[in-house]
């Protein structure tokens, strides 16, 4: 029971308190790039969720089966990048072959996240926090859900901003960055939710 409680804490923590975009400032590139419309934001979120779950799993195995026994922890970053990039490419090919519908929904976003820092971040945090496999998986999924939450909310705000009468110098990216900042401040409110 205590274990389930811990997993729950990890999930809540990675979704809200240590939100990848809003608190850790990882994955800002897709956060700003693919957040013009809610529809695409949801697609991106789904793709990230999928990739982060896979990554958490694979990098965990690589870390404890290959890197640690060989004493190669210092190669962690570069190997994780290698693993993530090839994994995403591989998954993209498999999806394209097996499920054209899923490929239509996720296909365009998958190449975008091959070298996303948020994905690498979750892999490294998993190791740093000394999570076990299940916890790592939940941390990955939680982080991705947090990313999805942030990007979808942000896209909703941006859709409304499009129609507002914004002073000319602030139109487009400036107001988007200000909005992102304000959202980040709002997410600060979750700090201290869990002791």
């Amino acid at each position: 029971m205590e274990y389930v409680g811990k997993i729950f804490v990890i999930l809540i923590s990675s979704i809200l308190i240590n939100n990848f975009v809003m608190s850790r400032f990882l994955g800002i590139c897709p956060f700003l790039g693919v957040s013009k419309r809610v529809e695409t934001a949801v697609g991106m979120g789904a793709a990230v969720t999928f990739v982060m779950a896979m990554t958490s799993l694979i990098t965990y195995i690589i870390q404890y089966v290959i890197l640690e026994p060989l004493g190669l922890e210092y190669l962690q970053t570069i190997i994780f990048i290698l693993v993530i990039a090839s994994l995403v490419q591989f998954v993209e090919m498999v999806i394209q072959k097996t499920s054209p519908t899923l490929y239509q929904a996720l296909g365009v976003y998958l190449p975008l996240i091959t070298t996303n820092c948020a994905v690498l971040g979750v892999a490294i945090i998993n190791i740093d926090e000394k999570y076990d496999l299940i916890q790592a998986l939940f941390n990955g999924v939680g982080a991705a859900l947090g990313f999805t939450l942030a990007i979808v909310l942000f896209a909703g705000v941006r859709e409304r901003l499009e129609l507002s009468d914004i002073p000319k110098p602030l139109k487009g990216f400036p107001i988007a960055l200000i909005t992102a900042g304000l959202m980040s401040v709002a997410f600060l409110g979750f700090q201290g939710l869990i002791k």
Binding site: L72, L75, S86, Q89
Partner: peptide
Amino acid sequence: SLGGMGLLFGAVLAFASKRFAV
């Protein structure tokens, strides 16, 4: 280990691109 992994992943991708070619 790094070279081996790179080679392995490359081989897997090359295989996949043939095997899963649409």
